[in-house]
């Protein structure tokens, strides 16, 4: 992620310009619905076609997958597995936030700490998190604890690094403002540092959440921790292709929901940020 934030450019003698929005021409709603429907139909046609060509041992037909999905959602195992995966993902993410964000904010506000931790953090974050699966298995066995340790280790780095960056990017003018108006340390953190760090922290959280879900599934798949990943692994053993595909669809939906929730949180919390805010009202 390039998380460099651009400071809004104020042109001499003009109102602050609205943030340069993506230059896409949004087709009108009617057209969009038509074309998106066409795309969905085409996708399913392609899927059906590849199933016919490659055989349903490789690519089961859409109908088969949806039938498998429909029978899955009636079973208790499915819901337990889903709930377990969601719980461990969120738990891991929560711990990662609780560790990474405060540490990053503290480290980022000191030049000494930033320089001192640079190499260690840089090394630790490049270790592929799944490397820890054997160690975590050894210590905790195939359990949620093992999974959470893995998720925390993998997703803490983007949070930590974004927090460091966020603190360092607080506009020096803001610091002057807090000095000139004699704001207390508390008030400075609440009114200036945290809000201006929020865009970076939320970006970090989005990166972290993708990693967390990936690792949750990986820990289940390899480490046999309970959850969707384990169910997928079991379908592989039983060679139930359609059910395996159905689980992949479920895992993807989980990812989509996670993304949507975080995107909504971003829009809501960063209403003031140039990338989100609506057009100027008064003039």
């Amino acid at each position: 992620m390039t998380s460099r934030q651009t400071v809004p450019v104020i042109m001499a003698g003009s109102r602050p310009r609205a943030w340069p929005r993506s230059t896409r021409r949004v087709p009108d709603v009617g057209h969009r619905i038509v074309w998106r429907t066409v795309a969905v139909v085409a996708t399913f046609a392609l899927w059906q076609f590849s199933s016919a060509v490659l055989g349903d041992r490789v690519v089961p037909a859409p109908a088969q997958v949806f039938r498998a999905l429909a029978s899955l959602v009636t079973t208790a195992e499915f819901w337990t597995a889903l709930l377990t995966t969601v719980t461990s993902t969120l738990l891991g993410l929560l711990i990662a936030v609780a560790l990474g964000v405060p540490l990053g904010l503290v480290v980022g506000s000191s030049r000494f700490l930033t320089a001192s931790t640079r190499l260690s953090a840089d090394f630790l974050r490049t270790i592929p998190p799944v490397t820890l699966i054997p160690l975590a298995l050894l210590l905790y066995g195939p359990s949620i604890a093992m999974q959470v340790v893995l998720i925390v280790f993998g997703s803490v780095w983007p949070l930590f690094l974004h927090a460091i960056y966020a603190v360092r990017e607080v506009d020096p003018i803001m610091r002057d403002v807090s000095a000139v108006f004699r704001m207390s340390t508390w008030s400075r953190w609440v009114n200036i540092t945290l809000p201006s760090s929020a865009p970076f922290l939320l970006t970090g959280l989005r990166v972290a959440s993708t990693i967390a879900l990936l690792l949750a599934v990986a820990a289940e798949l390899i480490g046999n921790a309970p959850g969707i990943g384990l169910e997928i692994a079991l379908t592989q053993m039983g060679a139930q292709v359609a059910t395996a595909y159905a689980y992949v669809v479920v895992a993807a939906l989980l990812g989509v929901v996670l993304n949507l929730v975080l995107a909504a949180a971003q829009r809501c919390l960063l209403f003031w940020h140039p990338s989100v805010r609506s057009v100027d009202v008064a003039s």
Binding site: V7, M174, D176, V177, V180, F181, M183, N191
Partner: peptide
């Protein structure tokens, strides 16, 4: 407190997450 300052760069010295009123009231906090 006997001094106060108007910064050159208004776009950066006002806090975008606070309303106009809250921005102005901020120095009085505490």
């Amino acid at each position: 407190s006997a001094l106060s300052l108007v910064f050159q760069d208004y776009g950066r010295s006002l806090l975008p997450w606070l309303t106009v009123l809250a921005n102005v009231a901020l120095p009085l906090k505490g």
